[in-house]
């Protein structure tokens, strides 16, 4: 532990410091001045892991790594990263064996605290959950905090700058396209779907780049609502488009094909339905950026 380099603590932000304190239970030496960890840092959640990768830090281990390729896709996870097992029951033996210097977790995994505390300091990255508020703004705040904690402030600032520029660029392009309201859904089976709305990340991004969300009902804490597909009949506004997120269960398209109700929906009749590659729903800025980019490109291609 003595080999740790002291971080040149000029750029620590108020938010970062408060965040670090609020994250609590950092070892005193870390909380006091922002010492960049040199040892392994593990991420118990996908959004945190992908943010780390974009900040140029590779997590030593990630929970539920099995599903990364299916649910997150980008950024690619380096092969040497260790799988910690499911997030609900993180494999403590592997975790402790890695002697991590820092564990990054979320408020949803608060029940793991007593197990994790003896292993390493914990910082909780809080984008979703009780606090409420705009998911994208919170993700940006937490990215700044993460940059401070990891000693990657410049990368964080650069990354957030790039992200802001991308959002601006997307917003400009969207203004040119002037799309109608858009509903974003993920099908769970032939008859049910999750539809995305406030206060989720997709909704936040759509707001940021000037796309109107067709689904105006407030959804749950994570920003989605489970519906029977017939409830899509509520989307009657002119020029509404339905964007379907992958992965799409294999038997869904055929079932929709046969459904007269589905065929009668305005956005189906006007051929305003399209599918888009997967973007992690419970993500942070990297996922927001991916969603903004994919959605804008998607709309441009269709225009």
């Amino acid at each position: 532990m003595s080999s740790k380099t002291r971080f040149r603590s000029t750029g620590i932000t108020r938010r970062g410091l408060l965040g670090g304190l609020a994250g609590g239970l950092l070892l005193p030496r870390m909380a006091s001045a922002g010492v960049a960890p040199t040892g392994p840092v593990v991420a118990l959640e996908y959004g945190i892991a992908s943010t780390m990768l974009t900040l140029g830090a590779v997590p030593a281990a990630v929970a539920s790594l099995d599903g990364w390729q299916k649910w997150v896709v980008e950024p690619a996870m380096p092969p040497e990263v260790v799988d910690l097992g499911s997030a609900w029951e993180v494999n403590l033996e592997i975790l402790a064996g890695m002697r991590p210097e820092l564990i990054l977790t979320t408020p949803f995994l608060a029940f793991l605290r007593p197990k994790l505390e003896p292993i390493a300091p914990i910082v909780s990255i809080d984008v979703y959950g009780a606090g409420g508020g705009d998911a994208l703004e919170r993700a940006i705040d937490e990215t700044v905090k993460l940059g401070d904690i990891l000693g990657h402030q410049q990368q964080a600032a650069a990354f957030l700058g790039e992200a802001q520029a991308l959002f601006e660029d997307c917003a400009t392009r969207i203004r040119r396209l002037r799309p109608g309201p858009i509903a974003v859904v993920s099908f769970t089976d032939q008859r049910h779907a999750r539809i995305h709305g406030r206060p989720g990340l997709y909704h936040s991004v759509m707001q940021r780049i000037g796309v109107e969300n067709a689904w105006t009902v407030e959804t749950n804490m994570w920003g989605f609502q489970t519906i029977g597909i017939e409830e899509l009949g509520r989307l009657q506004a002119d020029r509404t488009r339905l964007v379907v997120m992958e992965p799409l269960p294999p038997d869904v398209p055929a079932a929709l094909e046969r459904s007269t109700l589905w065929q009668s929906l305005p956005f189906v009749r006007q051929k305003q339905v399209s599918t888009m590659p997967a973007v992690l729903l419970f993500g942070m800025v990297e996922e927001a950026r991916r969603f903004a980019r994919l959605l804008t490109e998607h709309l441009e291609r269709l225009a």
């Binding site: 489970t226 029977g228 017939e230 079932a255 929709l256 046969r258 007269t260 589905w262």
Partner: peptide, 14 residues
């Protein structure tokens, strides 16, 4: 999806 299915939903669209 497994929960919905295991619990038997009657929602229909056709």
């Amino acid at each position: 999806s497994l929960f919905i299915w295991g619990a038997g939903s009657l929602a229909q669209q056709s």
